[in-house]
């Protein structure tokens, strides 16, 4: 499903070129659930941004579902983000002015779904993450765990094959974190490919494959039972 070949991302800082990713190669098959671990500055987030088509690598090739991502223009990348990839962020990143329902409907707006069908599609997803009774609440009226569930619903509403989560439990208490993790694992059981960036070994323990990064390189890639 995903094939990274010798991906690098370098930043220029004064005279020096610093690589956040220095030749990363990896393959992800559909239906996997992967934890990406590593110390701060190891390039986890950069890898996530490249995988999520938010950032372009400076070198190497990235193929997603047999399509070459590196060659795409901005609009095509926007389309991939909209239809193929769901994002879950550490800080939820919901739009505070809009209700939970409107937030979940947002990706559908950009895929051109007419407004009456949007609600039809957003409601079941919110019910699936257990927020059927909170749909008209604004993010500020929801707890952290609930906000993250809205964010997951938003990521799922277009039925993307890939879900990327960047420290999804980082801002949550352990009970809420556990619930969010359960939802993610559950989704994986239904066939969604999931990649989670995390520091938390308990989170990693729930994933079947763990990739370790250090200094922009893959230093460990193992599958656990």
């Amino acid at each position: 499903m995903i094939h990274l070949s010798d991906i690098s991302k370098t930043y220029r800082m004064g005279e020096l070129d610093i690589c956040a990713l220095c030749g990363v190669s990896l393959t992800v098959k559909a239906g996997e659930i992967i934890a990406i671990m590593g110390p701060s500055g190891s390039g986890k987030s950069t890898l996530m941004n490249v995988l999520g088509c938010l950032d372009r690598p400076t070198g190497g090739t990235y193929t997603f579902e047999d399509r070459e991502i590196s060659a795409m223009n901005d609009d095509e990348l926007a389309h991939v983000r909209n239809a193929k990839i769901g994002f879950v962020f550490q800080s939820f990143n919901l739009l505070p002015r809009f209700s939970a329902l409107k937030n979940v409907e947002m990706p559908l707006v950009y895929s051109g779904v007419p407004s009456k069908y949007r609600t039809e599609r957003a409601v079941p997803v919110l019910e699936k993450v257990g927020l059927g009774d909170r749909m008209e609440h604004k993010p500020t009226e929801l707890s952290g765990g609930q906000q993250q569930r809205v964010a997951i619903a938003r990521a799922l509403v277009n039925n993307p094959p890939l879900l990327l989560a960047d420290e999804p439990t980082g801002n949550l208490d352990s009970r809420s974190g556990e619930e969010i993790l359960n939802i993610l694992v559950d989704l994986n059981n239904q066939g969604v490919t999931i990649m989670i960036v995390t520091h938390d070994h308990d989170v990693a323990a729930r994933c079947k494959r763990i990739i370790n990064l250090k200094d922009g390189q893959v230093v460990g890639d193992r599958v656990q039972a």
């Binding site: 999520g52 609009d75 926007a78 983000r81 909209n82 739009l95 950009y110």
Partner: peptide, 16 residues
């Protein structure tokens, strides 16, 4: 700015 970032992450094109 953040709203713009979020909208782009979920699929808004520059023209949108």
């Amino acid at each position: 700015t953040r709203e713009i970032g979020i909208r782009k992450a979920i699929g808004a094109r520059n023209s949108d």
